[in-house]
């Protein structure tokens, strides 16, 4: 790496006196990118994200992992949204990587343009990452994203999914789960919160394009996220990574609960963590301790109307059905032999 590289500065660890950062008690080979003092600082400190922001955490881990995987030869296209707004209030920028924000809905196409320019210049050693929130991915950005997949353009697209339009004040997106309260799906009336639709499962839609790599991850397992980014960067063509990033503001949850909620989303089966390639699911992260969805829902104010006075166990039951269907569909829980069932934590 050239010495002028601005992203390469000695990293300060703010967790004083602890080895908690990035598994530094592990063998060096097993440690995370974040535990490396020589790592890049793609999204540096001082930005304006909320306390407990899952997206800021996810983006930092994902991009630093991508920087390590590409030896610092990376360009990033970013959609409009929280991540763009909190990182680049002119004249400041938290990005220490070449970074371009164009519009809300065109990030995949902009990334295609970057990749085309790099190819024509014979600089295919420089890799392209595009990133957007769920609105910029599943809704307004989907046309361009589908086009990018269909052409198999050499871009890793990362969606940081916090399940609503948080930047504009928590309005419903195509990724908002059923019954969740948002500013445009208020918790009033006989069907409070977001409607039960068919959903819009972007990871499966990506898989249906038969691109070479699709994965989901959460900020509860950052090592897994890093591993998937590194794997994605080892592959050419269109790759898609969908990261669940809880939002304390929009989910109406304590900022200290971000990681816990991401873990519960996985452990309930509501957010299946899996990998796929060329149209097939190739691997799943098994649920270790299956939790009922209620454990997950109760921690979030956006589901408050389902509990307490006027509780709606019927709606909680429908959400549990969704989780159970995911578990069955993706095989998220191992079949437990009959003699071990007494110790297994099965519902």
């Amino acid at each position: 790496m050239p010495e002028t590289h601005q992203a390469r500065h000695p990293v300060k660890f703010y967790q004083v006196g602890s080895f908690a950062v990035g598994n530094r008690l592990l063998d060096e080979a097993d440690r995370t990118v974040q535990s490396d003092r020589e790592r890049t600082n793609s999204l540096t400190s001082g930005h304006r994200a909320c306390q407990g922001c899952g997206e800021a955490l996810g983006a930092r881990y994902a991009l630093d992992a991508a920087m390590r995987a590409t030896d610092g030869r990376m360009v990033v296209a970013n959609a409009t949204g929280c991540l763009e707004v909190f990182s680049t209030p002119y004249p400041e920028s938290s990005w220490r990587i070449p970074w371009l924000h164009s519009l809300f809905g065109n990030t995949a196409a902009v990334a295609t343009g970057i990749a085309a320019a790099l190819k024509v210049k014979g600089r295919e050693d420089i890799r392209v990452v595009a990133q957007a929130g769920d609105g910029g991915t599943v809704d307004i950005g989907f046309g361009c994203l589908s086009g990018m997949f269909e052409r198999n353009d050499d871009v890793l697209f990362v969606c940081y999914d916090n399940e609503a339009y948080m930047n504009t004040g928590v309005q419903r997106s195509g990724a908002t789960p059923p019954a969740a309260r948002t500013a445009t799906t208020e918790a009033v009336g006989p069907e409070p919160g977001n409607r039960f639709g068919q959903g819009k499962n972007l990871p499966l839609l990506a898989l249906a394009h038969e691109i070479p790599y699709v994965a989901t991850a959460t900020v509860a397992d950052l090592h897994d996220l890093e591993r998937k980014v590194e794997k994605a960067m080892s592959i050419r063509g269109s790759r898609y990574l969908h990261v669940l990033v809880p939002c304390p503001l929009g989910w109406v949850a304590a900022s200290s609960e971000t990681i816990h909620l991401a873990r519960l989303a996985r452990e309930t089966g509501l957010f299946p963590v899996f990998e796929g390639a060329h149209g097939e699911v190739t691997d799943v992260v098994k649920i270790r301790h299956k939790e009922p969805v209620e454990e997950y829902l109760r921690l979030q104010g956006r589901y408050k109307h389902l509990f307490g006075s006027g509780a709606r166990p019927d709606i909680v039951g429908r959400i549990q059905e969704i989780a159970d269907r995911n578990i069955a569909r993706f095989g998220l829980v191992d079949e437990v032999p009959p003699d071990e069932q007494s110790v297994g934590k099965q519902p």
Partner: peptide, 16 residues
Amino acid sequence: ESEFAAMSVSIGASAT
């Protein structure tokens, strides 16, 4: 897949 993408690809390419 659209003119919106055509101009957006041009934006990415030109910025690179």
